[in-house]
């Protein structure tokens, strides 16, 4: 038997992406206080996203949306045993540093908050904490991965309760991946140019047939059937923002979305858990909103 080494490597790709792999098939829920965090954990959430206002309220209230109060994030960390994520503004590496120092488990560099940098995202390789970033298409996803993101989520149109943007983003990302697997080696350079993404990542996709990191869905999920839809399209887990705590009766809806995400191919079960949940969040059509959050990010 060879000796164990005492060396421990933290913040490696494998460790960062590994936590995302562990969240597969699960639901990550937006929460704004410890009480909601408890409801989310009780309903079977695999993680919570701590933020001050859910996207629907950010839309309604307007103003600049920033990182949450650290005291609020600490309050949530104390009450749940599941991973806690929190959002930093696009390009705001100082907010991300604070979140890392607080010991959050994942940082979401999020378009839901007001961007802090109009040209640059955070250099995520510089951190031990892993990052999740939103994307509307494959090029955006690959640029975020090249900056060190360990998990990609579709952006959708947060706070609308309208699923169509998330569907468009997933179809765009996964459709291009399917096309790349059919391309020959010369065409991959053309793909890299078209996507404005590193050719090495395009080649990796051609070889593996999927992103180098997990792909989750966010933005507009409001019902168990929405979760089933995006999982069948190829998302590996779902983020639910306003969809739970802006609905009539959050706890049973949260539980139903968890069940539907696990058994997403079982239409009978999705139907069963969808019964008598009360009204879903009212929402608004994504093409009628004033501010398109999904257009933030470069």
């Amino acid at each position: 038997m060879t000796e164990s080494t005492d060396r421990r490597a933290t913040g490696t790709d494998r460790v960062k992406r590994g936590l995302a792999e562990m969240l597969r098939g699960g639901v990550i829920m937006d929460v704004v206080n410890p009480e909601q965090a408890k409801i989310a954990e009780d309903a079977g959430a695999v993680a919570v996203m701590a933020l001050e206002r859910v996207p629907a309220d950010i839309r309604r209230d307007g103003g600049v949306a920033r990182m949450s109060d650290p005291a609020m994030i600490e309050g949530i960390k104390e009450i749940v045993t599941i991973p806690v994520m929190a959002k930093a503004r696009i390009g705001h590496f100082a907010e991300a540093q604070v979140l890392e120092a607080l010991g959050v488990d994942y940082v979401d560099e999020s378009e839901v908050l007001t961007p802090a940098d109009e040209a640059h995202h955070i250099d995520k390789w510089a951190f031990t904490v892993p990052f999740v970033c939103g994307a509307t298409n494959l090029g955006e996803a690959l640029r975020r991965i090249s900056e060190g993101a360990a998990l990609i989520r579709s952006k959708g149109e947060a706070g609308t309760g309208d699923i169509k943007e998330a569907v468009r983003h997933l179809r765009s990302i996964l459709g291009d991946i399917r096309a790349i697997t059919q391309a020959d080696s010369t065409e991959l350079y053309g793909w890299a140019k078209k996507l404005q993404a590193p050719v090495s990542l395009v080649q990796e996709i051609a070889e593996k047939g999927e992103l180098p990191v997990p792909l989750f869905c966010a933005g507009g999920i409001a019902t168990p059937a929405d979760a089933s839809l995006v999982m069948q399209l190829g998302a590996q887990a779902v983020f639910v923002g306003s969809g739970i705590f802006k609905s009539d009766d959050p706890a049973p809806r949260a539980r139903a979305i968890v069940e539907a995400t696990t058994h997403f191919r079982d239409a009978g079960l999705v139907g069963k858990v969808s019964r008598n949940l009360g009204d879903a969040m009212r929402g608004e059509e994504s093409n009628k909103v004033e501010t398109r959050l999904s257009e933030r990010g470069w």
Partner: peptide, 10 residues
């Protein structure tokens, strides 16, 4: 998560 790690194990 920031304490999650890889190591070589006997």
């Amino acid at each position: 998560q920031v304490d999650s790690f890889e190591t070589d194990l006997a």
